[in-house]
Design a protein around this nucleic acid. Structure first.
Lengths: 223, 223, 223, 223
DNA sequence: GATGAATGAGCGTTCATTCAT
DNA sequence: TATGAATGAACGCTCATTCAT
């Protein structure tokens, strides 16, 4: 997927450090207040640069947002690719999937917030290509289940789609916990002060229920 | 929980019908365009009342939104209360829960949209008290599981919290399907053109896996 | 020619006096500084109304200009129609034409200025229909000459087009005198402090040279 | 008349070629888009020099315009001086005057456009000294007529001023044809597809009517 | 109480001008 | 001297809110 480029050459020529600073501040603003409620002027001030400079870096406010998003698509993709390894045990993979999901959510809550803001309110405005990433991530869960069944690890009776949907929903909810106060409260209400690894472990118990192992046929020979 | 009152006495004295019409139109606008992109003027026009009157009903635009939200807290509460009957079979109740969830989502997608819009972008702006409703709804699932275990229907080994979290996540995801294109796509990707009752049936299979029945002790007597 | 309507109903409902005041001030600003150099804010201030009101009267700055122009099309048309009477002596008509031209120029120099500003710099931007008036005026001169020849008053040897162009050019130049300092100086340089009627008289002498009378054929019968 | 100097020494020290290129491009921009709509940045880019350099050549945008104008005063003066030769036949001179006028208009429509733009919209802004050129050119026509009468070629009855004004007006109108769509249309309406020399010929017929020859008294003796 | 015109702060964006390198 | 990034005042326009009738 080509994601284009929404910033100017001037921005590109800035030191990586300065680029980061500007983008991070913008991310924080957008995440905190939503895109529409954020002001370029305020972002500029907080970043310690002039208002005009913002426009020499990003032709429009939309472009600033798009820059933020595209910058993170590759990052997330990379993280997932590095973590999920089809050759591994399926539950290991799913566990990794949840672990990574929670890690991303914890480290980049603002990005998740922005992502949801867009999915929610600006779907018609922003390039559909940009809104694809999440789905690319999702497919993985279903794939993993399919692989597990194909390999004979998982019961062939498993309803792949609804099971994948269920598991995916849990991950979405966890993702949201990093963002909205509501979801955060929900998480706390159910998991208290548990650490993320502990939460993942609990969830994996549920996952194993949803995805039962293939009944070992050795029971027959045992009798 | 005090949810306060955000409209004026003048609005209260309007006929119920007129109140409804105004609120419904506002709901539709907010849901379609987002809160910030909606115009009081346009809402007034579509409701067939004067611009000025809007301000005699709701002191500010925020108050209009708050009125909408608080008005619906009671409605949703009522619906759930009517549907969930603790005396019924637990799975019957959970099934009803999903059915009602999907029904509300289908009939009032605008409200869900507004809800998420606020949770997402206006959390700093709107009173936290207002953001409580969803949680009140949620508690039900956990309650049901607890009841099920207490009655001896469900296995006492069930991890109540994580199970409730999982089931609740599925319902959240379904709710979101009525609103965001992304979630809508996800639903279609996993369930195709299945009807809501069919989807609920599939999900109930998952739910039953998550919530296993108590092992019948009759096995003991059998020996 | 339908010229549409570029102001809002709100403006229409204003007292004629207030409408006049606003328009006159805008005319003055546009004439003095040119359209692009004029500021809505300043016009509002000078008219003693709020900035926002300007936009409730005229949706855009362009619309304000268009309103000014269309408002005056009818006026000028009327004036010309009332003055030129094809049945009159041709030179009487041409004289009236110049008299009216000078009168309009003197009473509405700003309008002429705006007109030229547009013709000069905004020809691509403003509706071509709007830029027609001047030409409608022009045709008259050629018509008058044609009528004069047809009636046997003017010499049939007259080159209608170039003669009309010449006479029209003089009138354009006089019109411009009301506007640009340059043209004003030119006029003064050639006519000194002469009054407009005196100037018209002088010009009519030139016109009569350009449009010689038909040679009376009675000379033939006389021999 | 002191026309001052509006560019810097740095600009002066540039090669004549480079100076020309910069100025020509600026002229084109100003003429095409109007002064206010032209961008220093774009001119710099098109001229292949840096943005900053423009400001080392011309302290302000206004100064660039002023430089353009003063530069062309001398040029036009020269052209007219070379073409008009008082010793020639008066009609030959006037014909040359029109020919040169049309040639300049055709070759440098941009300059005419700028000239009119200023005369129209920036008269208050730009130094009056700069707005003098045209008049210097104009004087010529009156001079020629005066010379013609003095030499006994033209009828002494000719009203010098109004005749000069009339002829000059025609030339102004032709000049404008190179610039404004309206004037262009007017020209086409009256002269169709005639070439410039043909148009000049037609106009000279009018000119000869305006400026009758002195009645030769020798005709009497001739009989 | 209803109406809708009046108000003006605020926004995204532009671009002449300045300035650091 | 050349370069091009940095700056911020200014503009057209919007719209929540106020206010006169």
């Amino acid at each position: 997927m080509k994601t284009g480029k929404f910033h100017t050459g001037i921005f590109e020529r800035l030191s990586a450090k300065k680029q980061e600073r500007i983008l991070n501040i913008a991310v924080k603003e957008f995440a905190d207040k939503g895109f529409l409620n954020s002001r370029i002027k305020e972002i500029a001030q907080k970043a310690g640069i002039s208002y005009g400079s913002m426009y020499s870096y990003f032709p429009t406010k939309d472009d600033l947002l798009k820059t933020i998003i595209t910058r993170n698509i590759d990052f997330q993709k990379t993280v997932f690719k590095e973590t999920i390894n089809r050759d591994d045990d399926i539950f290991e993979n799913i566990k990794n999937f949840f672990t990574v999901t929670l890690k991303i959510a914890e480290e980049n809550p603002e990005l998740i917030a922005i992502w949801r803001d867009i999915a929610q309110s600006y779907h018609t405005k922003f390039l559909p290509e940009i809104i694809q990433l999440e789905q690319e991530g999702l497919i993985t869960i279903r794939d993993l289940i399919q692989t597990g069944i194909a390999r004979g690890t998982l019961s062939p009776d498993i309803m792949i789609n609804s099971s994948a949907y269920a598991i995916d929903s849990i991950s979405s909810e966890l993702l949201a916990s990093s963002v909205s106060d509501q979801n955060k409260k929900k998480k706390k209400m159910f998991f208290g002060e548990k650490t993320n690894p502990e939460i993942v472990d609990e969830i994996m118990i549920i996952v194993r229920k949803i995805l039962p192992l293939k009944q070992s046929t050795s029971s027959f020979t045992a009798s």
